[in-house]
Design a protein around this nucleic acid. Sequence first.
DNA 1: CGGCTGGAATCAAAA
DNA 2: AATTTTGATTCCAGC
Length: 898
Amino acid sequence: MEKTAVLFMLLCLEVQSVPFSFCFISFMFLLKLCCYLRFKKAFSYVPNVSLSTLTLGMGSPCLGSQYHNLQTSPVISVSSCHQASYGLHGDPMASGYYLPPGLRPPLESPRIEITTYTQIPEVEVEEESVDPLTKRVNIVTLTLPSADGYRDPSCLSPASSLSSRSCNSEASYESGFYNYDNSPQNSPWQSPCVSPKGSGPLHSCSHAPVSPSASPHVAAANGDGWRKYGLDGGPCRPPLYSPSLSPSASPQGSPRLSCVDEAWLGTTNQYTNSAIVAAINALSTDGLADLGEGVPLKARKTNLEHGPAASMKAEPGADEMGPVSELCQEDYLGSGRLPFKKERYCGSFLDVPPHLCSWTKPKTYISPSLPALDWQLPSCSGPYSLQIEVQPKSHHRAHYETEGSRGAVKALSGGHPVVQLYGYVDSEPLTLQLFIGTADDRLLRPHAFYQVHRITGKTVSTPSHEAMQTSTKVLEIPLLPENNMRAIIDCAGILKLRNSDIELRKGETDIGRKNTRVRMVFRVHINQPNGRTVSLQVASNPIECSQRSAQELPLVEKQSMDTYPATGGKQMLLSGHNFLPDSKVMFVEKAQDGHHVWETEAKVDKDSIKPTSLVVEIPPYRSQRIASAVPVSFYVCNSKRKRSQYQCFTYLPPSIPMIKTEPADDYESQGAPRMRSNPYYGQQRLPPTMPLGEAEPCVVGSYVPCPPRPTPLPCSSPGSSPKLHDLSPVPFPGGAAPLPLPSSPDHTSLAMAHPQGSPHLGSPSYHPFYPGSSPSSSPASHPSTPGVAADSPYLPAYGSAQPRGSPPTLLSEDSSSPALAVTIKQEPQELDQMTLDDGRCVCVRARAHSHTGFTGPLGYKLALWDFRAVCPNMADARVRGRSGSGQPKTGAHARHST
DNA sequence: CGGCTGGAATCAAAA
DNA sequence: AATTTTGATTCCAGC
């Protein structure tokens, strides 16, 4: 059935002759039927549950109506089945949209949903409740919808707990608002439908689906959201890469959770990028119980094993959350965040003073929608600049749910990371968002296997609040003018989710094995007088979260130089960790396709080797006749499988005088003199001297060829064995774009070497595609993006059309842009070894992303197609990744099942 | 007593 | 197919 629905939808879309609205409606109808059937089949007993639960939930005045609505609306039921719909509160209007009354299936509604809601607020009660039935009910409920719940907010953490309460309140009162403007976390996608009353939501709801232009994805999104994001939807979650795509799609764990999260937190975006796609994914999977499927067997098992609370925790999400009550409280209290929702509504309900912390009035977000977490945003825009003043340590052992917290991420100095927003003169506090992102060569996106973990306690000075956005936990931290818009991040730990749990999720394509590096990603959304919202983002240096890797893999944090004439012969000091007496340093040059063009072992001064430093002699480049700078990379190797990430290094034409560019480096003061931090580990600032214009060219040049660039590039995966051999004739044959050389060699080198490191540019570099949110910046930059509202503050990271030839230009008008280009490749990758393989080119990616803009189920195809066309290796890698992940999954399954 | 840690045993997948 | 190695998770114990 489901498949039929999906096929139908696809068919309609493909044919194009059928109005989208019609397709959508029809599709929804089919979906509903499917869901209903399944639901009924699986949870016929739900009704009882509801009753019991309801009793508990009375606390909220709103509940009644809310629930009522929910039950009434068929839509809801659908939602419950598939995440996409969770948010919907059955607004009659909304529902109408989806299904004509007449057509609505007589869902009795398992109303499930409701049950959940009610209870949530009373979580504590539940746990304590002696009534087996009650507990059971909960369990049931939880499991229901979530197909993929693991990453679901609920699952993740306590955060969800809060939400529970919020659910009640929020839904009814702040709905419309909330989704759009209120919480920073809200994603644009939140469906308007969510709020029963919110006119806004309704509005959007109604429009969205109907809109002709809307892409399938869009449909789900709220009116504004979709308009702006519609195109992105695709890009944002390119099926290929973006975890969000699928996973996101199914963020929802149990209905209850979802409700909570979404409604309350406003986090979730069911309709995110592509609700439809998500729904399709969910449906397309094996027919067997979605419910069950969504929950990893192991996870379920674990939960059950957990003990007394087992019932409550039956759901994966619940499990993680631990003490719900605690969450609620804490979150509740602590958060200043959400001015709107909580305070008003929940506040009274809980009886908690709205302003326990100074951070009571976070700025409201005017923007109708906020960029999805996998969107690439700049760190600077106009007068604003979001910077990581103090980087986190390169190692932080994440904790499993089965362990206790391992504390907050610390800084190298022993303190904690510090983030500051420059250029903000308003007196209104802002909310700094923090989530755990990936650190591989691909575009930054939420990490599927790690979640930020809120740390509380006496040692924590910074208040924070947890929220779920899509399936990613986001920590919200106040940025107060009185603190100079500076925040000490001492409240963020990192939670590791079991690979098997995540990999089993529908749509998840990434694999967890050896995918243990993350970055802390900070975002801030600043409302502008003109109604637009400027969103900035900056990512930290990579953080190795695996105990073992941290102890065994060599890590290069700094290098005394990153450029040198092709003649080589100079000694370079490397500082880092896990260097052994027999550590080797290999220099590598990779071709576009990822193949090693040249590789040689550099001479290491054995006597100089210390666990944290070593001296290596820069080997002469394979050709002394290079006309332009040649980016290569090197890595430290302790054994065949223990290698550091690729580090950037650039050979300069022998004749070119070396210019020393040492950006002020915070680290330098602490460490070896004149050591250059590696791209990831050090904070570098681009030389102020470099004009944008210049920067771009550089970028282009380097990109064009899709050069091995950067080092670390994805292209070069540490994993790949050093095979090597110089096969290629010239460094950048043909056109490989020679890096713009030096007038300021530095630039080149810097750019390459320190992509994100620079506080100023950091983010931007990673997000070349993002035009910059500031009003001033954007328009020009992405004129071509069709569909994207001109006024839209955000550009779809992937969707923006870029002039193809140019490497993704990084930038937009934004001043920050300069560095951008470089960044892209920087990341070294270890993980990739497996999943990604070599051959990944930034260029390719960029391109693919832009294509993704087309979104929809079709979008996926387009993206894939692109990859293949542009960079066969990439495409292959992707494909392999998928299939590869499949295996592990299978294995996991087997394992769990046993 | 509970949160953090550092270590290490135990499992399981990959080589 | 068996064995070894590597990576992921779970446990422990001390602070």
